[in-house]
Design a protein around this nucleic acid. Structure first.
Lengths: 240, 240
DNA sequence: CGCCGGTGTTGCGCCAGCGCAAACTTCCGC
DNA sequence: GCGGAAGTTTGCGCTGGCGCAACACCGGCG
């Protein structure tokens, strides 16, 4: 637990439209907490006692099916909120959050939410925007899973990861946190075997450079070409 | 365009926590509009000039891919909001809305949203809850598409449709609006051929009763058994 | 420094579901 | 009541991607 400098977080979408004093008010109620790499921040089903803003590091949100398979819901980047279950009326977390890297978060007790929202209405509208974009992204994912082949989906996933967490590196853009083939499989609805095969193929074509929990995009452009590959070039069957 | 009786809509989630006068205020700004079966309410990409509450009928929200394939995002039931793009900061509708039945909606000009939210903060929090549940549902869909076979996904889709729009009928529960095999395919990420085969199979087993744009669930229970069918009964592979 | 567990690669066989094609049924408009 | 369009069913062959299995690699720890 530590004090947080308001100026460091003032630009985050969640705090848009807040004055310095208001921001101070808000931050006074938060604790700053550190989570070690691979530690759980909260578990699916646990009661949603806290909501978070990620300050540093990366967090994976995932859901587990009754039969034990995991699906990655999203990766959280610094500046984003997560664990806002109670804001949308859920008493329990709908997913598990794991720090994939050493991470630092701001944490508010969920019980403060109603009071904070009443005091700062912008909090509700800002959160609405955030949840709205996530809904959009998730719909995009559904559309991709419905219409595209595995290879294209993986390409899209990598490009998205690179955009949101890419670090420029000598020969391209590297995804800035440890990510396994298994993780990518769980993001795209396929198996680690298939992902491995696809990445191997791309690596031999020079599109990417792989490694243990590590991926570098060497030719993002050619990758996006691959991602948009058309399968049905003919006229779409319309509705009446 | 017509007046709307506040008492008819007071119980809707969007208006939770509103006094009768406040509700009157809100409704005064809305028009009531009728859409004929199969008419478009708005199109994907169009600027989001209006937001809606469905009073009567059923509306399909769908997205179209660059290559022309359609994916059904959801079916809207009476009492639900739709077209709230601007509330989440989008200038354009992210999907197309089509009346699948003769439908009646309440329509507000999008331009009134900021003023309404400022005046009635509950509007923001209620919408947040709504969008939040939709996000949950969409995540569920992603998980299903990632882990289940087509047959199970179709079973889930039918059960969900029956729950939200089922009409009790002599031999079971009928889905209360016209829905084609194609529609179901677009909800579950498969083809109308596969859906047709699956439904035929179920019909011959007496689980359902089909017809042109019509489905009756005769044995919902057995259908849910089918939906939960386990493929990997073994121990799940954990993370470290 | 050598072992060991987690991670990644690759070959092989199989099958769920797709694509194509053709026929059939139902509804609607004329 | 007749024609045609939309929706549905069904057969058939093919293939993308899965499941299994074996192996290779890397990095950390004792």
């Amino acid at each position: 637990m530590a004090k947080v400098d308001p100026s460091l977080v003032a630009h985050l979408p969640l705090f848009a439209g807040f004055s310095t004093e208001e921001l101070g008010d808000l931050l006074r109620e938060a604790r700053s907490v550190r989570f070690a790499k691979n530690s759980a921040i909260f578990e699916e089903g646990e009661d949603a006692h806290t909501f978070f803003v990620l300050l540093h590091g990366h967090v994976r949100a995932s859901k587990t099916t009754p039969s034990g398979e995991q699906v990655v819901v999203r990766y959280v980047s610094p500046g984003e909120t997560f664990g806002v279950a109670m804001a949308i009326g859920l008493p329990n977390y709908p997913a598990t959050a794991t720090a994939v890297d050493d991470s630092v978060v701001l944490a508010w007790p969920a019980s403060t939410w109603p009071r904070l929202v009443a005091k700062f209405p912008a909090l509700a509208t800002n959160t609405l925007q955030t949840i709205g974009s996530r809904l959009q992204e998730t719909h995009t994912r559904v559309v991709e899973m419905s219409t595209q082949q595995v290879e294209q989906r993986v390409a899209h996933a990598l490009l998205r990861l690179a955009k949101q967490s890419g670090r420029k590196v000598e020969h391209g853009v590297e995804i800035d946190f440890p990510i396994s083939r298994q993780d990518i499989a769980q993001m795209t609805g396929t198996t680690l075997h298939t992902v491995s095969r696809i990445l191997s193929g791309w690596e031999s074509r020079g599109l990417i450079e792989g490694g243990r929990q590590r991926i570098v995009l060497r030719e993002p452009h050619n990758l996006s070409v691959l991602a948009e590959a058309i399968q049905g070039e003919d006229v779409p069957p319309d509705r009446p």
